[in-house]
Simulated assay, not measured.
Amino acid sequence: MENKIKEMFPNWCNDDKKKYELILTDDIDSLVSCALLNKIKGYKINYFYDFETVYKIKDSDTPAIAIDCDLVNGRCWSNHVTMLSANDTVNSKSANLNNVLKISRENYYQKYCGSTAMQIWSFYDLPLPESEEGKMALLAIDGGYLGYYDKRFINIHSKYLNMLGFDELIEVLERHTKSEFYDFIQKHNLHKKIGVNRNGILTTQIDLATLQGLFNLDLSRPEKPFYISKELSRDWPTNLMSNKTYTKDDFPDMFSVALIYRNKVVFTKK
């Protein structure tokens, strides 16, 4: 990642003196990101958040970082657009290119549209996977390949890969088609979710064994059961009026938030 961009991220990202716990969310982007932070920093998963309920393994006084989730307040690594307008507030503890660069609803199509895992990979200067398939897997996470195959977004997509220091991934995209990435995702169930079963154990149909090999990364999930810690209410995609300026103050008690299209926001409330 370019140093001038890295310096804009929150100071806690480089804090080697303090230990944190991780809040896993419900997809492969979060799981790979948690595995990276465990490998780099030794942080462990103690919470799971499915965007309706927060679960925990045990009580803890250790501060936590939400992974692939944009909290309105608190530490998090993520990749969504959260500013509902250029005048909206941004979470100063959010490690998210879109927040760092002040991407909002008003310049939505200039957003970073890669994965949270790719940001972490870049921020901590990790070497890319050695194999072609491993590089494809990294691009496939959270649809991180899609912008390259849309003529409206190819330039901004390549700009961000350059910013992250991943020019090599542009060459991978040149060698493959959009349908090849789609087939890869279907083959390895990268689109499947992570959930909690009736015994509190995390379950998923994602092909973790293959990804572990491709990334040389431990993608095992906590074996201990999770228990309900906090229940939230989820507002399914809310349509925003195209001619109105919004801020988070228009939606009281937000816990986490993400613009999923320019005029649609989804959030949970305390």
Rank of each mutant, 00 (worst) to 15 (best):
F166D: 05
F166A: 10
F166M: 13
D167E: 14
D167N: 14
D167S: 13
D167M: 10
E168Y: 04
E168C: 04
L169V: 12
L169H: 08
I170A: 07
I170E: 05
I170G: 05
I170C: 06
E171S: 11
L173R: 07
L173P: 00
L173H: 05
L173G: 02
E174R: 15
R175M: 10
R175D: 09
H176K: 09
H176A: 03
H176I: 06
T177S: 09
T177R: 01
K178R: 14
K178D: 14
K178H: 13
S179R: 10
S179I: 15
S179Y: 09
E180T: 08
F181K: 03
F181S: 02
F181V: 04
D183R: 09
D183K: 08
D183N: 07
F184C: 07
F184M: 12
I185N: 00
I185G: 00
I185C: 02
Q186A: 12
K187G: 00
K187M: 08
H188G: 00
H188R: 08
N189A: 10
N189W: 03
L190A: 04
L190C: 05
L190P: 01
H191T: 14
K192E: 15
K192R: 13
K193N: 13
K193I: 14
K193H: 14
K193P: 03
K193Q: 13
I194M: 12
I194V: 12
G195S: 14
G195W: 15
G195F: 15
V196H: 00
N197L: 08
N197T: 09
R198V: 12
R198E: 13
R198G: 04
N199M: 10
N199G: 10
N199K: 12
N199Y: 12
G200V: 09
G200T: 10
G200D: 07
I201A: 06
I201N: 07
I201T: 10
L202C: 06
T203A: 06
T204D: 02
T204E: 03
T204K: 03
Q205G: 06
Q205I: 05
Q205D: 15
I206A: 06
I206R: 03
I206P: 01
I206T: 14
D207C: 05
D207K: 07
L208C: 03
L208D: 02
A209L: 11
A209D: 10
A209S: 11
A209G: 03
A209I: 12
T210H: 06
T210F: 01
T210E: 06
Q212H: 02
Q212P: 01
G213N: 12
G213F: 09
G213T: 11
L214F: 05
L214N: 03
L214G: 01
